[in-house]
Amino acid sequence: MGVIKMSARTLLAMAAAVGAGLAYGTTSPAPAGARPVPAALTQAAAAIAKELATHCPLAPAGDTESYNRCRQHLYGDSALRAQLPAYLIWGRQSKVPNATLRQTNLTQFSPEVWTSMYAPLFMFNGKHTVEWVPEEKSFLVRLQAAFRNRLAPGQFPYPFWHEEAKWAMYENANGLMLWINPDTLKVKAAQFTDRAPNPLLHAVAPVNHGKHDNATWLWTDARGVTQPAVSLFDGIYRADNPHLKAMDRQYRDLALQMRESQCTSCHVPNNPDKMSRLVLLSTPVHAAGEIDRLIRSVKEDRMPMDEYRTSYALPDEAKKALLQSAEEFKATVEAAKAWEHRHQAVKPTAPAPVGRVPGMNVSSNQPQQVAK
């Protein structure tokens, strides 16, 4: 067979093409016994990576406009949301070496909660890989990412800095991991990590928000506005949505009923009972995403739980009051969604200014962020 001659320019072009493929989207070679990556997953991963790089690109970590654009896109008919199941679990990668998802405490979210409050906190460059992980019996899409650590406190779903180690991992995150169910090709779990194989995508200027009391998940800022604003449907529902006031009132009533029924002592971000699969009910958006589960669990006497993690039935009157509040809140949330759907041709109003964490010594409406 004759030798095929190629010019130096051709060889360089081929090398560049291979390098680009390795940088922006690769499928790791499958070792013996591993499952090959389906073409549909390769295509979906590439679409998600491109979408994230386009609508959630790298920007200054405190760029609110960039964050809002990312948030509004992901919450809509995005490629990412199309790959999400009825619920997914989310959290940081465990610091324990080789810890599996089953061994890691994670939080359960509905797609609308995760795409509106958590995923938009990250920025992407489009580079990703897809591989099979036999220990998890799942495919893994790794996305290079960076975290928006310099946003105002009201733009986080709750004060992530209530735990120093959690906030540090968020600030230094360099990757997002999407765990894919091999049967459905849907995302079953998502994690952020500061141990991705790629370097940080930009220099991190740490922010010190001060010590958190591990109890205040909603607060009122100096202007009398409840924060975090993102947990009140801000920027997702239009300001003229006629159901907003009713949702706020009904959530407050629901929160009171849950507190009296001992339902809020567990379902809060600091996870006092160390549940392996936490469900948050501490803000209106979180509660709206889990309202069906809440109603079902109360009806079936699977919550609340006692100090030994044993569920028990509420007294009849308390159960009736809690279910009534939950059903009313659910009905109004559904009405608000229906109104938004009918008016979807109209662009949502810009999110309201976000406020400060209580106790911070600031003289303006903007939160003070102190570099460490």
Score class of each variant (00 low, 15 high):
48 I>S: 02
344 Q>I: 13
244 L>A: 05
372 K>I: 06
247 M>R: 08
305 M>G: 03
359 G>R: 01
185 L>S: 13
282 S>M: 15
302 R>N: 13
170 Y>F: 09
83 Q>Y: 07
4 I>G: 11
168 A>P: 15
258 M>T: 06
41 L>C: 01
317 E>L: 12
150 R>C: 03
191 Q>Y: 07
253 D>C: 06
244 L>Y: 08
192 F>P: 01
252 R>M: 06
353 P>R: 12
248 D>I: 15
78 S>Q: 02
280 L>G: 02
330 K>I: 04
171 E>F: 04
288 A>S: 08
96 V>P: 08
78 S>H: 02
118 Y>S: 08
53 A>W: 04
352 A>Y: 05
175 G>V: 00
365 N>R: 07
219 W>A: 01
350 A>P: 02
321 A>C: 09
95 K>P: 10
338 A>H: 12
105 N>A: 13
141 V>F: 02
308 Y>N: 13
59 A>K: 03
151 L>R: 01
56 C>R: 00
353 P>H: 08
302 R>E: 13
296 R>Y: 14
27 T>S: 09
113 V>A: 03
362 V>P: 03
96 V>M: 12
181 N>W: 08
221 D>K: 01
195 R>P: 04
210 G>P: 07
293 R>A: 13
229 A>D: 01
125 N>F: 01
75 Y>D: 11
365 N>C: 10
31 P>I: 06
337 K>C: 02
131 E>T: 15
115 T>H: 04
214 N>G: 12
31 P>E: 02
211 K>P: 05
323 L>P: 00
26 T>I: 10
10 T>S: 12
315 P>F: 03
108 Q>H: 10
252 R>C: 03
323 L>H: 04
7 S>W: 04
101 L>E: 02
194 D>K: 05
159 P>D: 04
319 K>G: 00
115 T>K: 01
302 R>V: 05
110 S>D: 06
301 D>F: 08
328 E>K: 12
148 R>M: 05
87 Y>I: 13
354 V>P: 12
160 F>R: 06
204 V>P: 14
372 K>L: 10
82 A>F: 10
367 P>N: 12
48 I>K: 00
331 A>K: 13
162 H>E: 07
59 A>I: 14
79 A>E: 09
215 A>W: 05
170 Y>T: 09
94 S>H: 00
122 F>C: 00
93 Q>I: 10
267 H>T: 01
63 D>P: 03
197 P>C: 00
74 L>C: 09
50 K>P: 04
171 E>G: 14
67 Y>S: 04
291 I>K: 04
54 T>C: 13
43 Q>A: 09
60 P>L: 14
161 W>M: 03
90 W>M: 14
360 M>D: 07
235 G>S: 06
119 A>Y: 04
230 V>N: 00
112 E>K: 13
199 P>I: 06
270 N>E: 08
226 T>H: 11
311 S>Q: 15
258 M>Q: 02
92 R>T: 15
64 T>S: 14
255 A>Y: 00
220 T>P: 13
143 L>T: 07
357 V>K: 10
154 G>N: 05
268 V>D: 11
308 Y>M: 10
65 E>L: 10
126 G>N: 01
172 N>E: 12
77 D>P: 15
62 G>E: 07
361 N>H: 11
349 T>G: 14
23 A>T: 09
295 I>P: 01
231 S>N: 03
352 A>Q: 12
163 E>T: 13
40 A>P: 10
266 C>S: 09
103 Q>S: 11
